[in-house]
Structures are given as C-alpha cells and as structure tokens.
Design a binder for these strands. Structure first.
Lengths: 330, 330
DNA sequence: CTGAAAGCGCTAACAA
DNA sequence: TTGTTAGCGCTTTCAG
C-alpha cells in the first residue's frame, strides 16, 4: 500500500496525502481528517526509502568502534544513541575490530548515501587513512583524536590524566611504578605513556623500560600475564605499583598479581582508567581515572549533528574533564 | 555525480553502466573497461537509497536489545553482526531499554522499509505485543522466546540450566539456596525460577520465599543489597548459597556478601549465569552456567536470513546447549 | 486549499 | 551487446 492507494481511498491527490503526512498547514481540516482516516484503515506506512531518496538524506548515523564488547565503548555509544534518537536519527553501530579494511567499508556507507554522518572511535592510525581521501565527508572523532587532522573531535586530556594517576601512586609512596599499556596504534595509548613517563621524571624517578608492557588486545588474560611478569622480575625491576591504561587491563592485572601471590594494594598498588561499572565491584575496588563516557558520546553526536545542519559551520574540538576516583586498590 | 554522469563520460547508456556495476555478464569487455574507467575518474559511488528503492530491500538488519551495556548481549550481538556482514547485510543495533514504546518505534522501521528484518532480544512480554499486530513481519526471537508465539527462535533450556546450577550447589552440600532473580517480565527469569524451585523440591528441600529476591535492573548495587539482605536474615531464612540468574548479579552479590563480612564460598557459595568474560577474573572466580553467546547470535542471524531468502520456508526453533563451568565461588 | 507533473538515482523489461 | 523507457514511492514546485 503506497501513498497513491491512500490518496485514492480518501478521494484526494497524492500531493495532499503527502502534505498531511508531513504536517503541512495548508490543508483543510476536513480533508486532513479524511486522509488520516484512510491512512488508519489502510494501515499505510511511509516508505522511507522513497522519502529518503527524494530528500537525499537517510537520517542514519554511523558509529564505528574498535570493539563493542568493551564496556567503555558501550557507555559512550549509549550517549551517542540518546542524542541521535532525540534528534530523529537512528544510530548504526559498526564493530570495525580496528581493521582499516572494515573501517573503509563502513565509511563507504557515507559515500553511498546510506548514512548521513559518522562518529569514529577507532585508532588514530586508521582515522588518518580516512581523513586523507574523505576530508569532505561529515564525521567526527571521539575519544581518539588527532587535533591537526582537521576533523571535529571530543575527548579527554590523556596526557594529564595519566599524570594524575601516576602522581596519585607517587603520593602513596610508590616509586617503582609499572605501566600496562594497550596497542600503541592508539594515540591515547601513546599520550598516556608520555604522561606516565613525564610524571615519573618530574618526581625524580627514572622510569625503567622493564616496568612497561604492551598488551595488544584488551583482554584480561594478557593483562594478567603481563602483571605477573612485571612483578616477578628481580630487584628494582619489580614495580610496587601498576598503572593500567584501562580498567579491563587493571582487573586482569589484579588477577595476575593474585595468581603469583601478590596482594593488592599491600604488595602492589593498581590504578586503572575509565571507571567502568565493574571497577567498583571487584576486590579490592579499583582506583581509577573516570572518563565522562556518556558525555563523550553525547558531545560527539551533537558535534556531528551541528556539522550536518550546517556543513559550513566550523565545529570546535572539545576537551572534557576526567577525574581521579580513589578506591582501595591504590 | 550519478549514474547518468558516468554514462555520459563513458559514452554509453545508463543501462550499460548499471550492468557493469552489477556485474552482469552481457557487456563487451571493452565497454566494461570504458565504464570502469569513468567510474574511477569521476569518483562515482552508487546511491544505495535509489538502488534500494528500486529493489525494495535495504539490506539492513535490526537487532533490538534491552540493554547493550550488558556484556552478555554484546557478545550475542557480535555473533549476529558477523553472520550478517558475511551475507552482505548491515546490522543496526537498537537499545530499547525493554521499553515497549521504543521497541515499537524501532519495529516500525521494518514496516517503513528501512530494514529488511529484525532480531529481538527483548522480554517476551514486549515481544507479545509485537507478535500480535505484526505476525507477518520477518523477525526472530533470540535468547528470550515463547515457543508458541509462532516466531522463529533460538535460545537455551533455561529451566534445565537453572536446575543444573542448583544441583551443583546441592552436590556441594548446600541446602538453603537463595535466588537472586531479575525482572520477571523476562520469560527466562520465570523459567529459571521454576528450574530452581523444582530442583530444590526434587532434592527434598522446601524452598522458602525468604530466600528469593528480584532485582529490577541488571546492576551491581541492587544485587549487592539483595545478597546482603538475604544472608542477614535470622536462622534458616539465611541461605548458605546463592544462585544469581546472571553473572552481573552474581558479581554484585559477592561484593554485597563481602560488605557484610561473609566470605565466598566459605560462608556463602555463589553461582552465576552467562559466563561473561569478567566471570573468571573476579575473586573468587565465578562458577557459572555458560551460554553459547556467540552461537546464539549467529544462529539467530541465520534463521532470519533464511526467512528473508524464502518467506514461505518454515524456520525451526533451535535450542543450544548450556554448560556448567565450575570455578571457585561454588 | 488542492491537483498535475516533474524528478530523486537506480534497475529491469523490452527493443533494436 | 546495447539503448530506451517505465517505474520504485515519495516530495515539491507550479498552476489553478
């Protein structure tokens, strides 16, 4: 049943039906009622494919995440979704696995008019590829952003946040602070490492490379292994604290520590990053850097919507505040 | 730049361009090359809106989850996504918050031809509303299913799985087994409760209602409170074990137990449900019923795809096996 | 206030 | 092998 059917049933033209469907005011109330009745009885629904073709917009927003099993991303995505829906858009969530190929294929949806805009949370390394050949497409970078990529962005100050974590550990009397970092294809990983190193140096401690481990997947096991290795080194190579760049990693680390008989925080203090909801539930509750996950997502969505509404508008980058949450692990 | 532009540039008709774009064989190689070249230089991309309007399909699949912050759903969704993409479909993830209104509005996307099919993980109570006025729309129920709703489904045997959990506790010598259940708007919640009750009775123990708590949001705090209340009752009202119908709840429960000085499993054994990845990481590692999350999603997607390929085909319901994973919490 | 008609970009008969 | 043409269902001038 198409608009033509409704028109016939109501004894009017398709144009009139379209008008009432779109809430135009220039329709006689009586006519409008007749149309509405016909819509009711016929069970008609607009074909948005047709509408979108005509209006040249899909009202679909893409969100590309490297891994949507990660609770951190889940919460950010919630923020995006809320704002999008609030503005009449639907959000299509794409799990790229941080794979440039998949990322490209999703990005193609923009070019093919299947989506109006995109929000990208992928590693800045893969974002760069996009920025080059599609500087013109409407998208914004979220959480992971390179300020001179010329793309609107939102995120936190990772450098300073990492410093805050380290300074907290320092203030607790820890000196040999280890780092469990993630894949340094992520700018955030590199920035947090810088923040960590500088904070240590500023305090007069020379960071040993033996204190650092990279984990190339955000999984618990890998972090557990890394933590166990770290503390089982001899002498001053063995850290008395660990800063993990995500709560997931921190939880794995605590588990790894326990498996080699080290207690947290008595033997080794641990601080995480993100403040996902499990962080407060584990034993000991995790001290961590809280990111405003929901706001991150909401802001990204708003930036994109603004860009969409006025392609010429200069959309700013925005930095959101982080916060140290002290619990018992450090 | 549209297909017409390419046609002009290549000196052929739009039909020919369409043919090479769609890989039809009846095009002279030389012509095809000319077209391809024009596509290249012009940077043309199909407008899928137009294509979809013409072919009357969107190649979009909807997945409706009640809460996509829940790691359990995340993993199921991964399975759906993988199969969908493998078959040339994109998956649109919708967080309904188990709200019938939002659910309806997403479902409307099917009626409006924005999506070809849907997979629904929402409570069976809200599914029923859908089944009534849209028995004809292509959708399948996943995890949460009512076998006589006339909709293809996939899930596990919740009744038996809950029984297995309880029997395990029984075999460990626990008799006063508590239940932390979720919102009984979910069929799975009601089924697991039945399984729990029957297993207890079969073992000759009379389940006290004082042993049971419902938690209406899947969050840690609520579960923690429930667990604390449960064990602080007097006499035989205080359970010596708790079966929680999800790992999230179980983790919260263990935390609640700890907060009132009860150790797990020494004082109170705990078994969870789902086997999400944190389950193995907490202290003590969680004994739980593992659901084949990924397969659940993959199967749902396959059922839907089958239904789409042949609307007349009778699509079966499928029951996937669960598994008791014994760790240290019980 | 309403209708006729053009056209969004594409695919698929049908012709040649 | 290629071109012409008729829609897909809708919105939107432009006339009346």
């Amino acid at each position: 049943m198409s608009i033509a059917g409704v028109a016939e049933q109501a004894g009017v033209s398709v144009a009139t039906v379209s008008r009432v469907l779109n809430g135009h005011s220039n329709v006689r109330p009586e006519t409008r009622d007749r149309v509405l009745a016909a819509v009711q009885t016929s069970g008609y629904r607009v074909n948005e494919l047709a509408r979108n073709l005509r209006t040249a917009e899909s009202h679909l927003l893409l969100t590309m995440v490297p891994d949507f099993g990660n609770p951190f991303y889940a919460e950010v995505v919630r923020g995006i979704d809320a704002v999008a829906r609030q503005h009449g858009y639907f959000m299509l969530l794409c799990d790229t696995g941080a794979d440039p190929g998949r990322e490209r294929s999703y990005f193609d949806m923009l070019r093919r008019h299947r989506a109006d805009g995109a929000i990208c949370l992928d590693p800045d390394t893969v974002q760069h590829a996009l920025a080059e050949d599609s500087g013109t497409l409407p998208w914004v970078a979220c959480c992971e952003f390179d300020t001179d990529m010329g793309v609107p962005w939102v995120g936190i100050d990772n450098y300073r946040a990492a410093g805050d974590a380290v300074r907290h550990l320092l203030s607790r009397g820890r000196r040999r602070i280890g780092l469990i970092n993630s894949d340094d294809g992520y700018l955030y990983a590199r920035q947090r490492q810088e923040g960590y190193l500088d904070a240590l140096r500023d305090a007069g401690v020379t960071p040993l490379s033996a204190w650092r481990r990279n984990v190339y997947s955000l999984d618990y096991e890998a972090a557990a292994t890394a933590a166990a290795e770290l503390v089982q080194q001899s002498g001053e190579n063995a850290p008395d604290a660990i800063f993990a760049v995500s709560d997931t990693l921190a939880i794995g680390a605590i588990n790894g520590l326990r498996s080699v008989g080290k207690r947290t925080p008595a033997d080794v203090a641990v601080v995480g990053f993100d403040d996902i909801s499990v962080a407060a539930q584990i034993d000991p509750p995790l001290t961590t850097i809280a990111q405003p996950m929901r706001e991150l997502g909401e802001t990204a969505a708003r930036l994109l919507l603004k860009r969409l509404a006025d392609p010429a508008a200069s959309v700013p980058g925005v930095l959101l505040p982080h916060r140290l949450v002290v619990r018992l692990s450090a």
